[in-house]
Design a protein around this nucleic acid. Structure first.
Lengths: 211, 211
DNA sequence: GTTTGTGAAATAGTTCACAGCA
DNA sequence: TGCTGTGAACTATTTCACAAAC
């Protein structure tokens, strides 16, 4: 057990939680680092090293108790409570995100939605009434929003993110395909499928008889 | 200029392309590594080092010609042509992906869609006729599909991915929230917003007065 | 015998710092 | 002078290898 945990290690924890939840579902009680590593395409050593940053969860000669490790990791990640999200931008993409059924079962609930378009303000989407952007700051406080999801056009993303930062938000998930600036104490994760695709074409273009 | 380029370097190239395209749009002709680094929240040294893996694109005392560097990077990434994609799974998520307007302008076109549900097969979604899963292998070949997008439920993802691999696909973008196995010669990128959120809660839970 | 947890060694990635060119 | 391109130095991350626990 050590202090100051590398970011890469933290970023792998959610994958472990997901995998362990599957094992738990399948009524598997114990798993060792070899099998766990195989499951995620990584070395057993790395699994053990990663876990060792947080404590000693295994039993020599036996492996890890799935239910126990799952519960420990969930607690470490703060997944033992529900997190409240606000979505900014309720266009095509924003609606798809609000409709996505994968958030609630994993502890993330959309409690507020904002847009600047007169014609959508006041309407209800996926059970949430869309509010005016002007109400963002107060609503974020009143509804105790922990995380903001940005789904506005690229041109407006930075402006919206600045507004979110001013309202005190410390975690932002950005779907707009632009790099955005945030202060060091705010976390920003980006979801951009095109960036992921463009990383793959490099290898595609190099392999077979392309071009 | 060197050989054997680190994956992290390749993964940053799409971001450079995106940023340079913005600069080009704004009629900026030259940019130096300092300003470019500032734009992406990284050091000028890293920008220069990254680019040096592919060639010498800059001019001492002046910086980089935006149009030139953009065109070079596009070519390196294989973005100077259009890539054909097939989508597997045309449920709620699959439709949202097919409706997304951000792919085509950036060179990615959905040319085929597959589902196993009788009631959607034959229907047209976003200009593409949905085909039976059984036709996947032949359609992938006939339509020269380069990249597959997986949007089926988690339980079916591995099976679908195996099928795609057998059909000869070398690049897969997986939206299903599971870790999937692919042979070493196949690239798989995952889009899982919940994983991104769970990485952020670790820090949220640690900062202020949460819990 | 099996498998963990962990320092030490090895490898990968980033930053430094400066020669050389415009 | 200003800024690139790049080895060398440094830092981060992964892998090794083994003592200790079961």
């Amino acid at each position: 057990m050590q202090r100051q945990i590398p970011e890469v290690v933290v970023s792998r924890l959610p994958m472990y939680v997901r995998g362990l939840a599957e094992l738990h579902q399948d009524d598997i009680d114990f798993i060792n680092s070899k099998d766990l590593g195989h499951r995620f395409g990584m070395s057993p050593d790395q699994i053990r090293k990663d876990l060792s940053y947080f404590g000693k969860f295994g039993r020599q000669g036996r492996g890890y108790n799935v239910a126990l490790l799952l519960s420990e990791l969930r607690q470490i990640l703060g997944l033992d409570r529900q997190w409240c999200m606000a979505i900014v931008g309720v266009g095509r993409l924003g609606r798809a995100i609000m409709d996505y059924k994968g958030f609630v079962p994993r502890g993330f609930k959309i409690v507020a939605a904002f847009d600047k378009e007169r014609n959508v303000i006041g309407k209800r989407v996926s059970g949430v009434v869309i509010q005016d952007m002007a109400e963002l700051e107060t609503a974020v406080r009143d509804k105790k929003v922990d995380i903001a999801v940005v789904a506005v056009p690229s041109t407006e993303a930075q402006e919206v993110i600045d507004k979110l930062v001013r309202s005190g938000i410390k975690s932002i998930l950005n779907y707009a395909p632009v790099y955005a600036y945030v202060p060091k104490d705010v976390r920003l994760e980006a979801i951009d499928p095109v960036l992921a695709l463009q990383g793959m074409t490099y290898y595609l273009a190099r392999s077979q008889d392309y071009r």
